[in-house]
Design a protein around this nucleic acid. Structure first.
Lengths: 222, 222
DNA sequence: CAGGTTACATATCGATTGTTACGTTAATCA
DNA sequence: TGATTAACGTAACAATCGATATGTAACCTG
């Protein structure tokens, strides 16, 4: 792909595009796509409007660039966890504990940009909302793929419903993101992840002993 | 409190305020607070700006009224579940399965207004974001209270960390809300709730046998 | 040094945001 | 019936939104 090559001469940039993009990313992360105005971006990036538009085309493109940067620089823990050379259960544990840390980093907005960026949007910004949904679905698919791999490797029960558990684990991560926004600490989220993992193992045992599966409540009634 | 009494004469309203509020609530539910413009509200409510402002003061007040209405008319399942004359475990099961249905009702926006309404907001709308957070925290507190009641009644282990499990269960509900926004079906969410409940029970057993508690991963390693 | 190219700074664009005067119409109260 | 009260419809308000037109300054190539 293209990178940071300048095709030919001309006046050089008076600012660092990566630093500016970083500032924009944090602002979008904090306030979401639509609620972040150009005036706010202008001040945070320390640039004039023409500088922003010359370097990033328009607000939507700037946001998409910020999403890509966020994916590359802020949530590497996810792919690292899912591709780590460890058993599937350990990979999931790394994923959730990694999220607990990533969602509560000091000097960073709480939660995940893919969720805070635009959960709800105006009609003209629904393309942005859809892109964020695509990122979230990609995470879910990556988890499902890792579970399937673990199942095929014999680490997980053969009859495991990967889609179902991927949806559960993704949902837990989404919940952690919102709890982080609401002020939960890293330890809070780690405890939440621990409980979620206990669930996963409990259902694992249940799937190993093939009874009825999609039942939600017959075993509670304490 | 005040209700629908008209203090004195004057020209009567030409529209039904409750129906108008209902239309506004659904619009806010779908697009969130800031992304819902007055033009959209005007069309959905079938009113002119002065009609809206005369009846609801301003956009912020209208949104707060919509929140109250949402609380009263759309998520009664939560208080019903938590106040039902059943054991604590069954109450939690009712809560999660109720959420699975409420977040995926046909002809309603997906998920929960308290989450979609304003997860991220501009600086001038942070009062709104805080109010939504207050609603979410109230849910968490209500769950914690129900767990504490169950613990005191001997239905749950004596050493139970109610705050921790309330945070977990609230987080699961938040995750369900986002999964609903991303297109999950009622059955998807019910399965998610079932897995979450299994976790809850697994940790319950763990708490009953007092070992180390706040550990997230020592038992995985499958 | 001349020509070409690119980014700079200043100022402002049209559109849309939430909100409100203003004069009229329809009800109740004396 | 006349006075009072409140909601009506029309039109427009100031402020902010995202985005640009314009002329100048700074670099590379020849």
């Amino acid at each position: 792909m293209e990178n940071s090559e300048k095709p030919r001469g001309g006046r050089p940039r008076a600012f660092d595009p990566e630093a500016a993009l970083d500032a924009a990313m944090h602002l979008f992360w904090e306030h979401g796509y639509e609620a972040t105005s150009l005036a706010m971006l202008r001040e945070a990036m320390g640039l004039t409007p023409p500088q922003i538009y010359n370097a990033f085309t328009d607000k939507e493109t700037l946001f998409r660039r910020a999403l890509a940067r966020y994916h590359d620089r802020e949530i590497g823990f996810a792919l690292d966890a899912l591709s780590a050379p460890v058993p599937a259960g350990e990979a999931i544990r790394l994923l959730l504990t990694g999220a607990a840390e990533a969602y509560t980093r000091p000097d960073k907005p709480g939660g995940c940009l893919f969720i805070s960026g635009a959960l709800a949007a105006s009609p003209q910004a629904q393309g942005i909302a859809d892109e964020l949904k695509t990122y979230r679905k990609a995470t879910e698919a990556a988890i499902a793929a890792r579970l399937a791999k673990g199942r095929d490797a014999g680490e997980l029960p053969a009859g495991l419903s990967v889609e179902r558990f991927a949806k559960y684990l993704t949902g837990v991560m989404h919940g952690m993101s919102i709890q982080a926004r609401d002020g939960a600490s890293t330890e809070d989220l780690r405890a939440l992840a621990g409980t979620a993992l206990a669930a996963w193992m409990a259902e694992m045992r249940k799937a190993a002993a093939p009874k009825d599966d999609a039942d939600a409540g017959s075993a509670v009634h304490n």
